[in-house]
């Protein structure tokens, strides 16, 4: 771990005053940042420990629910408001990592966690995300974890979060603050595709602090699911995951939400596919059509070709679970 200096401000303004430099990082739960620092992948010179900032509350606001950036993943998952209105988010959180990691991991940190690409993690290999311009050794190599949608010739990594897939489906909004002011970023615009600057995971500017994530008031408490497919039954990242939510009135689907994890550099939403489903009765054939639409441009990298078919089936099954109102259980490993 490279040497660094450390501060622990108690006010947001103090934290922002220290932020900004290329080599400064915010430290929240540390479960991703400290991991990467030990691997010498992240090499900050200064850490601003934000865990004492007053950003750890879940508040009712007019437009919905405002989740402070420092709310722990486990607290968020078990918050009654979240369990009642957005059980999809609880499910996604409880599918992520392990109980003890969720006791450290924060909302903001989860949002900003970095890819699990083997090459990104191993400084003996070439990686554009770690070292812009070095090349991407994953291409043509081991790509089980890698993207089938939205990849670029510069990077084929995926975003590993479960929480973010649910938030994408729920149309969350990210609140950020910097020394110069505050702004909000719609969730879909928060994470980005790699393009030719894969070193940038998000549209956050240097020095900007995520202060909260806002969930719109619309509740999805009957027809939803989070279906995560992975290499073991727990404590593994998604190969493919599906967050699905909808309203069902008189046998017709409205307000359909569908987001995929494990398949792209960001949680993947496809509004066209959602539109295709809206206003129709839930049927497998229709779900398949939506899946085809989403995956029309999907491209495998060899070892991950199977994820296209896996995603297709997961989408159909996820929509089916949501429509039937039988969300995937975290503990009962039978696929609902």
């Amino acid at each position: 771990m490279r040497r660094f200096s450390y501060s622990r401000p108690t006010e947001v303004s103090e934290a922002l005053a220290e932020a900004g430099g290329e080599d400064v990082r915010f430290l929240a739960g540390g479960t991703n940042l400290v991991d990467l620092m030990k691997e010498n992948v992240e090499r900050p010179q200064h850490l601003v420990d934000i865990t004492r900032l007053p950003l750890d509350r879940i508040e009712e606001i007019q437009s919905g629910l405002k989740i402070g950036a420092l709310v722990l993943n486990s607290d968020l998952a078990h918050d009654p408001k979240v369990e009642n209105r957005y059980p999809l988010l609880s499910l996604a959180l409880l599918n992520g990592a392990s109980p003890q990691l969720r006791n450290s991991a924060t909302t903001g940190g989860n949002l900003l966690q970095r890819t699990r690409c083997y090459y990104f993690y191993d400084v003996a290999t070439a990686c554009n995300k770690r070292d812009p311009g070095a090349g991407c050794q994953a291409i043509g190599g081991l790509t089980r974890l890698h993207a089938i949608l939205g990849a670029s010739p510069h990077c084929i990594a995926t975003h590993p979060s479960d929480m973010c897939v649910a938030m994408a489906a729920l149309d969350a909004v990210v609140h950020v603050e910097s020394a110069t002011g505050t702004r909000t970023i719609p969730f879909e615009d928060f994470h980005r595709l790699p393009g030719d600057t894969p070193q940038r995971d998000t549209t956050l500017e240097p020095g900007e602090l995520v202060t909260a994530v806002e969930l719109p008031a619309t509740r999805f408490d009957r027809h939803y699911t989070y279906l995560k497919l992975r290499d073991r039954q727990s404590y593994a990242f998604a190969l493919v995951s599906v967050a699905a939510a909808m309203r069902l009135e008189d046998g017709v689907m409205t307000d359909v939400r569908l987001a995929l994890g494990g398949v792209a550099h960001k949680p993947w939403r496809d509004r066209d596919a959602e539109a295709l489903l809206s206003g129709k009765a839930p049927e497998r054939a229709l779900f398949s059509k939506a899946a085809e639409a989403i995956l029309a441009d999907a491209q495998g990298q060899g070892a991950n070709d199977f994820k296209i078919e896996l995603a297709r089936r997961a989408i159909v099954r996820g929509l089916d679970q949501a429509a039937r109102g039988t969300p995937q259980s975290v503990t009962d490993k039978r696929i609902a």
Partner: peptide, 10 residues
Amino acid sequence: INSCLKLAVS
């Protein structure tokens, strides 16, 4: 929590 990923100072 996992103590390996927690900086003691924090």
